[in-house]
């Protein structure tokens, strides 16, 4: 009994520690987003866990107005970067998922291009920097620099291997007989894909899309190199939030970070019910 109690204490302290390591920084960000400058800046000398005078100043500030005399209002608000991030990450995810899913299906079913899977994963072995300089030149040549569609295109290309590999594993695990049955019952190959495979793969598609979206959403390097002004994304914009008087604008960064956390969280919650359901539950006899 004693030993069990000791063990349980130990177990829960470890769990508590892990949770603290993960959640306290997040909590800190949330609390900082609602603090006035005196509370979040070191110059105020008054660091607290919870905002003493909660305010939405930080949010107002990043959208272009300033209520504090200490900081000059921003020349450009966060609205445009948020739009840039949403557009580039969403369409980048779309490109990666459409191309990745169809490629994965083809390779999984017809075993054509046997070296392609490895070639695709090799794309990820390059240090991104080595690839990005040529990409910058190409994008400049094509007129894609500093556009959301240029960014979406490169996001789609960069995350394609992930989408491909995730979907290929799911397709490989799907029992062939279900598709065979549909073929026998009168479907063409393409119709089988649309009517049987894709609906069955909904959980797989949802989780892969979420994963790819998060990768695109949190990119900094590519956006830094390929956007300059009109279509900078949230991470790039966030890095630029500083002032000559106070240095890094942590309050504003925290507010923006809080906003940036919303889309992945919403997506995650939205697809949760698909994630917990088994892929082929009930289709086969055990």
């Amino acid at each position: 009994m004693q030993r069990t109690l000791l063990f349980e204490t130990f177990r829960f302290s470890i769990i508590f520690l892990i949770i603290a390591l993960t959640l306290v920084p997040t909590l800190w960000m949330v609390s900082m987003a609602f603090k006035p400058i005196q509370e979040w800046s070191a110059s105020g000398g008054d660091l607290t866990w919870w905002p003493k005078n909660p305010t939405l100043d930080n949010f107002r500030f990043i959208f272009g107005e300033s209520s504090s005399e200490l900081i000059v209002a921003l020349e450009r608000g966060a609205g445009r970067p948020i739009l840039a991030s949403l557009l580039s990450a969403t369409f980048g995810t779309l490109i990666a998922m459409v191309a990745g899913t169809t490629a994965a299906y083809g390779l999984s079913r017809f075993n054509s291009g046997r070296n392609l899977p490895l070639a695709l994963i090799q794309l990820r072995l390059f240090p991104p920097m080595a690839v990005m300089i040529p990409v910058m030149i190409m994008w400049a040549f094509l007129g894609l620099t500093d556009t959301w569609w240029g960014l979406a295109l490169i996001y789609g290309i960069v995350t394609l291997p992930f989408a491909f590999w995730l979907m290929k594993t799911f397709f490989d695990d799907m029992p062939r007989e279900i598709e065979d049955a549909a073929l026998v019952e009168g479907c063409s190959r393409f119709r089988v894909f649309l009517k049987i495979t894709l609906p069955m793969m909904r959980p797989a598609l949802a989780s892969s899309a979420l994963f790819v979206f998060i990768l695109n959403w949190s990119d900094y390097l590519i956006a830094l190199l390929l956007t300059t002004r009109d279509w900078v994304t949230i991470p790039v914009y966030m890095a630029s939030l500083s002032s000559s008087m106070t240095g890094q604008l942590y309050g504003a960064k925290a507010a923006l970070g809080l906003i940036a956390a919303i889309p992945p969280v919403v997506m995650g919650i939205a697809i949760q019910k698909h994630l917990v359901r088994g892929l082929t539950f009930g289709a086969l006899k055990e």
């Binding site: 007989e177 549909a182 009168g186």
Partner: peptide, 30 residues
């Protein structure tokens, strides 16, 4: 000749029901 054109019905060993459809939709499918 494609499987669909051969007009042969099959019961698979692992049954291969369509999991995202009801039993009725499965039976209606062909």
């Amino acid at each position: 000749v494609a499987p669909a054109q051969r007009n042969i019905a099959m019961v698979f060993q692992n049954l291969a029901l369509f999991p995202h459809m009801s039993a009725e939709q499965n039976v209606r499918f062909p």
